[in-house]
Amino acid sequence: MDGLKETLVIWSAELRRAVRSGRAVVLLGLYSMFSALVLLVVGWLAREVRAAVNQKLAEAGGADADTSARFAEEMRKGVLGFLTSNDTAMMEALAQVPIEVLLVFKVTLFFLPAYVALMGFDQISGEVGPRSMRYLTVRARRSSVLLGKFLSQAALLVGLVLIIDLAIFIYARIANPDFGFAALSLNLLKFWMAAIVFSLSYVALTTLCSSLFRSPAVSLVFNFILLFVFWLMDTVGRASSAVDAASGQQEGALRFLRYLSPSYYAGDLLHPSFTEFGVSGAAYAGFATIFLLGAYGALRARDL
């Protein structure tokens, strides 16, 4: 059996086991509850802001409906500009998307790497620890086992993200009657693809962490440590660049740290330009490749 067939067999077996297990249901419930909580909080804040604005306008002399509508549109453009870093092309492309969807998408992207870590922290270490991995590697290459498990986790994540994104967009359609079916379908596909491109590199990172240790608990802790390090690199790099640009001085050396963090490239995943999206997609593909190569090196050198 060649490598491709071995990978497909392991992928299908692992995916069936993951779907039939209770973990898939728990993960779906966890992701659903978190997304629903964020959506409800964002919706409540939006309603409170609109109510406060309408009250201020009424106290100022009873503005007409057109004035209120224009003020609301200006507020929407301000929030949209903040979420897109005032990128004109992105603002035009996302003009029809409800703000609630954009805010939930931004918040969930921040927590999605942790969710991915919880989903697959034991994909390799769960079998290396009890030494059941040796029965797989007798019948298949280690690279096939690694790729099969990675693809099964990726496929499960693709399905879970699609279910949650579909629910969010349906809610947005109900809450915003002017959000048409054509715009809903197009943006659902766009947001789903952006989340998948973003998360696959973190699935590869989880595979790497799971390959480095025999204990699933240690793999999970190390995974969270790496996520924090990447977040810190992105935050410090952005802050260094922003402070130096504001002072008019030459940018500091720490600004380069942001380029080493996967989260830095998330900003252009919804960009309408293929070039901008392609750069971000290529960056995530590069991170995923590096993590998988590291995982293969660790698994190949390990005594199973």
Rank of each mutant, 00 (worst) to 15 (best):
D244R: 00
L37D: 10
A282L: 15
L45Y: 07
L293R: 10
F224S: 11
G29R: 00
F110K: 01
L45P: 01
L15K: 10
A155W: 05
E276P: 06
V229T: 15
V229Q: 04
Y284K: 04
L212V: 06
I196V: 13
V9F: 12
R214T: 09
V97A: 04
F198A: 04
L112C: 07
I225G: 12
V158Q: 11
L109I: 09
I168M: 12
A183N: 07
G281K: 00
M90I: 02
L136R: 06
V107R: 02
I170Q: 15
A266K: 13
A283W: 09
L151H: 01
Y265T: 01
I174D: 07
E92Y: 12
L232M: 14
A72D: 13
S185Q: 11
E59D: 11
G267L: 15
G294C: 08
L200R: 07
Y31H: 10
Q55L: 14
F34W: 06
Q123F: 11
F34N: 13
R300I: 14
P98M: 03
G267V: 15
L189C: 07
L146I: 09
N176F: 11
A36T: 12
F105L: 01
I99H: 01
D87F: 03
P262V: 07
V38K: 01
E6F: 07
I168F: 08
I170K: 07
D122K: 14
R47Y: 10
V229G: 05
L226M: 14
M233P: 09
A93Q: 08
A63H: 11
L40F: 12
V9L: 15
L83V: 00
L30Q: 10
Y115R: 15
F121A: 12
T207I: 15
A285P: 12
Q153R: 14
S215W: 03
G81D: 02
E92M: 12
R50V: 12
R139I: 01
L254T: 05
F222I: 12
A175S: 08
T289E: 03
F228V: 14
S152V: 05
L83P: 01
A46C: 02
S32M: 07
G3I: 11
R300H: 14
M75P: 13
S273L: 04
V9Y: 13
F228K: 07
L220G: 03
Y284C: 08
A182W: 13
L186G: 11
V203P: 09
L220D: 05
L102A: 06
A282H: 05
Y284F: 12
F274A: 15
S201H: 00
Q250S: 15
A46M: 09
L200M: 14
A217M: 14
F213A: 08
G43D: 05
L188A: 10
F34D: 12
S21A: 09
